[in-house]
Design a protein around this nucleic acid. Structure first.
Lengths: 143, 143
DNA sequence: TATATAATCTACTAAATATATAGATTATAT
DNA sequence: ATATAATCTATATATTTAGTAGATTATATA
């Protein structure tokens, strides 16, 4: 299961994707109301996405948040990694968060690693190849 | 990420799969030692697998645990659902644990549901079609 | 029938993670 | 100067994860 935080992030990014062409900052409060996300929680999420290079922000009157790059260039995988961490089902098959499973002797002989590798590959194939734009343009089937 | 508990469960089941033909009960303590799983924790796991019909047990001397059915008939999906619950990334796309996402208005218009559906389908395809026997016979590529 | 064995049941505990909330501070446009 | 809106700091609470301790029950066998 992905976290509620990750869903909030994707929903907020969906709003910013729709407004990307306008090139005008959107208020945290507007997104919070529109997507029914607790405002303070959303603040933290957007800040994290900004610090990780997905968004840019502007303080003061007329300020708000904007996508830093075109929405077709931002994959769902990138967003999920920022908010939830690893996409892989085990540390030993993770691309971006690799780590030795602390309960495992050897990766070569591990009997559950191969299936986890398959799951990781299948998930990445989807998450990496779906962009924020794809989420909004649901009819345009990606892949 | 799947839980350590789920990995422990799969590893324990791997041991019982290897011993399935012998048809002799295996001690919790033997599995615990062999797979380096905290014994008391493993007790709870095996009990749960037994209560859900994956294992059968025998008390007293000569007792222990055995697979209830041949290992090729037990899917990894079944085990994961017992230990970790839903395989799907969101409640709204879960087959066995369906539920309305509490932060969602409408499933029809939700922009993140389609990709979650894809992820669920891809994961199930793998987890449902991999059996305990497949885990042990790693060279025999399933699917 | 007594005994050792091995699973089962009941009840905790500690640490981490998820999901927030409150209030002060800083930057900016007007 | 002022209002605005993001940013920072500090908690708070609930749930989940991972585990431990000890008593109880069922069973084979001597």
């Amino acid at each position: 299961m992905i976290s509620k935080k990750a869903k909030y992030a994707l929903k907020a990014l969906k709003v910013l994707t729709k407004k990307f062409e306008a090139n005008e900052p959107t208020l945290i409060s507007d997104i919070a109301v529109e997507e029914k996300i607790p405002k303070k929680f959303l603040e933290a999420i957007l800040l994290e996405l900004r610090n990780q290079g997905i968004l840019k922000s502007q303080k003061g009157k007329g300020g708000g948040y904007l996508l830093r790059t075109p929405p077709n260039e931002v994959s769902v995988a990138k967003v999920l990694r920022i908010i939830d961490g690893p996409i892989a089902p085990t540390p030993c098959v993770s691309v971006n968060f690799y780590g030795k499973c602390d309960d495992c002797e050897s990766e070569e002989t591990c009997s559950i690693r191969p299936i986890m590798l398959k799951i990781r590959n299948a998930s990445l194939e989807i998450y990496e190849n779906t962009s924020l734009l794809d989420l909004v343009l649901k009819d345009t089937i990606p892949l």
